[in-house]
Computed example of a mutant assay.
Amino acid sequence: MAKFPRLLWSESKLRDNMRYLNNLFSSCAWPIAWTPVTKATCAHPDIVKVLLSEGVAEIADSRIENLKQVKSLSSACRTLLLRLPGLHEITDVIQYADTSLVSEQTTIARLSDAAKAAGVRHRIILMVELGDLREGVLPQHVLERGRFILQQENIDWCGIGTNLTCYGGILPTREKMTQLLDLKASIARELGHVVDVVSGGNSSSLSLLLDGNMPAGISHLRLGEALLLGRETAQGGQIAGMHGDIFTLEAEVIEVQVKGSVPEGERGMDAFGKTPEFEDIGDHTRAILAIGKQDVPIEELVPLDDNVRILGGSSDHMILDVGSDAVRVGDIVAFRVSYPVLLQAMTSPYVAKTRA
């Protein structure tokens, strides 16, 4: 018997998106690779297996727990840790991540010590701050940090990279990508070291490639939302030829009643400490679904039925205006899934994850 709420996903559409991206990158005039990012799916085993069956050689994630899951499915698959390593997890990073994104000197030194103790070499990509104000060293400090890296034992400095749009909303541009390439040249000229990987960002950087504005020499992108939702995230546009509906969220109706639209009585705060406002549309048919803010950001959901409107909810209830639809207890209501919905629904243990 089906369990609800549930997140349905299409294997065939996921494979289509994989193949679209593979074809896009293989058709470039210079060598450029992409790594699928599984953090929005918590490296769900069935989804990882699909990626592996499509020939993926490397998978990226922000959580060591997820990289451990990947390694349990394929010891041969390389893993890339996206979030800067915490000092408390250095031993696990060395064990489960083949490559780390780094910025801090202390962290690099600890990785070196742990890699030496384990008798392995660990690859690092030095992150560069190009304006979004999340992780990375300032461009003027790259050479200084590079000199330190080259002194570390058991560390292979394979690349430089950047992250844009995630915090400050700063867009990737040809100029910012060129800045990375200039840093690569400076590293070779001043330090005598060649970094093979120039990682130009995430799904927001994909638009540069699609528009023909990506400068030759950028050799790597890290793609999650583009793969899973078929979107470039610079402007949030759907990519022609990619599926945006791999995932659908479904929840069960547990009550249908005709009620007023404005609460009655003396009002205080709701369950989340807010004082909500209500539109008075008179008596109408309201349905309650067995899903709430503990499971998904309900304000991000879009009902597939245009006659259904989300009114709000609490931690474990969502309330709908179902208009003239003949909705009954036990019916299933379906929703389009955005990136925040996918991320939270996949993380919630109360939402089933089911292959369609």
Rank of each mutant, 00 (worst) to 15 (best):
D156T: 10
D156N: 09
D156M: 10
D156Y: 09
W157E: 01
C158T: 14
G159K: 00
I160R: 03
I160Y: 08
G161C: 04
G161I: 04
T162G: 04
N163L: 10
N163H: 12
N163T: 11
T165Y: 11
T165K: 10
C166D: 11
G168E: 09
G168S: 07
I170N: 09
I170C: 10
I170P: 01
I170F: 13
L171Y: 15
T173H: 13
E175V: 11
K176Q: 12
T178Q: 15
Q179A: 15
Q179F: 12
Q179M: 14
L180T: 02
L180G: 00
L181C: 12
L181M: 08
L181H: 07
L181G: 05
D182L: 13
L183T: 02
L183H: 03
L183Y: 00
L183N: 04
L183K: 00
K184V: 07
A185W: 08
A185C: 10
S186A: 14
I187F: 07
A188S: 15
E190K: 13
E190W: 11
L191P: 01
L191Q: 06
L191N: 02
V194I: 15
V195L: 01
V197F: 08
V197D: 03
S199E: 02
G200K: 01
N202A: 14
N202F: 04
N202I: 01
S203D: 03
S204F: 02
S204M: 08
S205E: 03
L206M: 03
L206P: 05
S207P: 06
S207M: 13
L208E: 11
L210M: 07
D211H: 13
D211T: 15
D211R: 14
D211M: 13
G212I: 06
P215I: 12
P215H: 09
P215F: 10
G217A: 03
I218M: 08
I218Q: 00
H220M: 10
H220Q: 11
L221R: 00
R222K: 05
L223V: 03
L223T: 04
L223P: 01
L223H: 05
E225N: 07
E225D: 08
A226L: 05
A226D: 01
A226T: 11
A226H: 03
A226G: 11
L227Q: 06
L227F: 04
L227Y: 05
G230F: 05
E232M: 04
A234Q: 12
Q235W: 14
G236S: 04
G236E: 06
G236V: 03
G237K: 12
Q238S: 14
I239M: 00
G241Q: 03
M242T: 05
M242G: 02
G244Q: 09
G244L: 01
I246W: 04
I246S: 07
I246Y: 06
I246V: 12
